[in-house]
């Protein structure tokens, strides 16, 4: 399987969409127009998009508290997402979920999750549905390096393996669980943890779209063909703090700047496809422009969109009660 020109354009557009979306949220949060907690995915774009390029609406993903990027990679609507983050009535979840709970099950997006390590058991369930009802679908759990130490993650590796579930675990290791380095908090290696359960596991440079795409291709194929679970350890870097407002004193001052200059995932992608003559720079520039406009428009509309009202407070607690 190869990436077509359309695939490459789609992948780039999704990555730029995530970057612009997160930069806009960063700005608006700093300006005080977004309530609550937000955790940004900027810098990790190639990881989520590299995986989700292999998925369709019939496949499920479970995300983390840092979920905007996974939503966009899974093709959730950016306009409805922006409204949701602003807490508006027409938001993707009616303004009831917010940044940490954005979901769209019709797109196979089972939700960002406010609980670290909350997603992998759910993904075992989605994979069990796929296996039992023979939908042909697969299910992907994204977890961070912090979550990788949670018992739920190990329980899910075990369950996925013994039930031979079409599940894929993507450990997005951005180097810090909140403020604590994964060099300190993670014993052993992510790959060896997978191998301990006889789950095929690989480590990839998560800033390299093509490396992630290739690893995910194998994992998704394995799952679709009844070969059971896989693990991908994707090394990434987040450009912002654990949460917006985090002073990041636990990071070297030049860490992000150096990474941006040398390994930025969008820059790498652009260089790779233009040098190989797969796409020309002007097509990419056009995507940059149109996505920037689109996100700016989303922000403007989100600001003026109506708030939920008291009538919305008690709806959707139950289906019937």
């Amino acid at each position: 399987m190869q990436l077509s020109r359309e695939d490459l354009l789609k992948a780039y557009r999704r990555m730029v969409m995530i970057r612009e979306f997160e930069e806009a949220v960063h700005e608006e949060f700093s300006a005080g127009s977004i309530p609550g907690f937000v955790h940004l995915y900027a810098g990790e774009e190639a990881s989520g998009v590299g995986v989700c390029m292999h998925l369709n609406d019939n496949d499920y993903i479970a995300s983390t508290h840092r979920g905007h990027g996974h939503c966009l990679a899974k093709d959730c609507d950016e306009h409805a997402m922006m409204l949701e983050i602003f807490g508006k009535k027409e938001g993707l979840c009616g303004g009831k979920g917010g940044s940490m709970h954005i979901a769209d099950l019709s797109k196979g997006m089972m939700g960002a999750n406010g609980i670290v390590g909350g997603g992998p058991p759910l993904i075992c369930g989605a994979a069990l549905t796929a296996k039992t009802l023979k939908t042909g679908g697969v299910a992907v759990a994204f977890v961070g390096d912090g979550a990788s130490n949670q018992g739920t993650v190990f329980e899910s590796y075990n369950l996925a393996k013994i039930l031979n579930l079409p599940a894929i675990f993507v450990v997005e290791d951005n180097g810090y669980a909140e403020a604590t380095s994964s060099r300190y908090s993670v014993a052993g290696s992510q790959v060896n943890r997978g191998k301990a359960f006889d789950i095929p596991a690989v480590e990839v440079d998560g800033s390299d779209f093509f490396a992630v795409w290739e690893a995910a291709r194998e994992a998704v194929e394995r799952a679709r063909n009844g070969g059971g679970p896989s693990l991908i350890h994707s090394r990434v870097l987040r450009y912002y703090g654990h949460f917006e407002g985090d002073a990041m004193t636990y990071r070297p001052a030049d860490e992000v700047a150096n990474y941006r200059a040398q390994k930025d995932p969008l820059m790498q992608f652009r260089r790779r496809v233009t040098e190989a003559g797969l796409l020309d720079g002007s097509a990419l520039d056009e995507i940059d422009r149109s996505v920037k406009d689109r996100i700016a428009q989303c922000v403007v509309q989100a600001k003026s969109a109506p708030e939920p009202t008291e009538a919305d407070l008690l709806t959707d607690v139950y289906i019937s009660y």
Partner: peptide, 18 residues
Amino acid sequence: ITESGFIGAAVGAAATGL
């Protein structure tokens, strides 16, 4: 004997069609 794992799986399975 992993209650988080299988109760969570039941929840995820319910949300996706079982």
